[in-house]
């Protein structure tokens, strides 16, 4: 479990992370989204004990990151994929992973099996002896992911894992992360890719120096927009709009072409009343759905760019 309390970090007087309070349960995938310079990478660096907070505390699995001995233990429990893979380009893929496995203390008789297992899962075992410098960006990212997992860490920190990858490589990485999620590994994901966050994360935090919001993607959507029912009609009359507006549980009605957007408190109880009222007014209802607000909508509204 990761526990951050009043975590603050300043660089030369500029606040990068401000009073961050966060708890991430074991086995959950937490997504951190926010613009560049929002403090996401700084937060990861503080949790992985690479830099210390200006104030506040970090505890990982009960270990205090401010204690040098416990920080060493924290580092052995976590795997880190930085934004830039940072591999040794003149060494082979296998040699890169073997080096890190040795540093993480993976027993020598287990190392080869573990590296083989990871590279086979990432479909690059046959390229294990090739120099990393010759690899594509996607392949380097795969090696870097394997490096973060070589010691079978309980916690995995991924900083922009699909950034700059072509769609095929991004898909492979995404699928691999879904596999890790199924294994029940705790994952902390920094990303700009809201689609990734929506698909992969149990909980999402929107960050801009401070934690602006936190919850599951659907909770965030409801929190910022409430719930909206979309009714597709053959035609819409003003009487239909005023009739629906007068219903109990309806908080707003908007017309969008032949769609009626109805803000409701509880779709399950109000939607039948809406349909009845529209039919009573002579409307021909073609379909009734709930409007899905994406994480992108939440993100843009929170960070000032949304409508």
């Amino acid at each position: 479990m990761i526990e951050l309390r009043d975590l603050t970090r300043r660089f030369n007087g500029n606040v990068a992370v401000d009073s961050l309070n966060l708890t991430i349960e074991d086995g959950k995938v937490f997504g951190f989204i926010g613009p560049n310079g929002a403090g996401k990478t700084t937060t990861i660096r503080m949790i992985t004990t690479l830099i210390s907070p200006t104030s506040g505390t970090v505890h990982v699995n009960g270990l205090d990151a401010s204690d040098p001995e416990e920080a060493l233990q924290i580092r052995s429990h976590v795997g880190l994929l930085p934004e830039i893979p940072g591999l040794y380009e003149t060494l082979s893929a296998y040699r890169n992973l073997d080096f890190y496995a040795a540093l993480y203390g993976v027993p020598i008789d287990r190392r080869k099996d573990r590296i083989k297992e990871l590279l086979e899962m990432l479909e690059i075992w046959d390229r294990r002896d090739d120099i990393v410098g010759k690899f594509s960006k996607g392949m380097k990212q795969k090696i870097a992911i394997a490096r973060a997992l070589v010691h079978e860490p309980e916690l995995l920190f991924l900083d922009e894992p699909t950034s700059g990858l072509d769609p095929e490589a991004a898909l492979t990485v995404r699928n691999f992360l879904l596999e890790l999620k199924k294994e029940g590994r705790t994952i902390f994901l920094n990303t700009h890719n809201l689609d990734d966050a929506e698909r992969l994360c149990d909980t999402v935090g929107v960050m801009r120096t401070r934690l602006l919001a936190k919850g599951s993607p659907s909770e965030l959507s409801q929190q910022f927009w409430g719930r909206t029912t979309v009714v597709h009609l053959h035609s819409i009359s003003p009487a239909m709009i005023s009739g629906v507006r007068g219903l109990s549980g309806v908080t707003g009605v908007q017309q969008d072409g032949d769609h009626l957007l109805v803000d409701v408190t509880d779709p399950a109880s109000v939607n039948p009343d809406i349909v009845r009222e529209l039919v009573r007014q002579g409307g021909q209802v073609e379909s009734v759905n709930e409007l899905k607000r994406s994480l992108e909508d939440v993100y843009l509204r929170l960070l000032g760019g949304g409508k």
Binding site: L50, R75, P82, G86, L103, R147
Partner: peptide
């Protein structure tokens, strides 16, 4: 320059 220090520093070494 290769940005390989960060993953190295993340390992359990002093």
């Amino acid at each position: 320059l290769n940005r390989s220090l960060e993953p190295l520093l993340a390992t359990p070494t002093t």
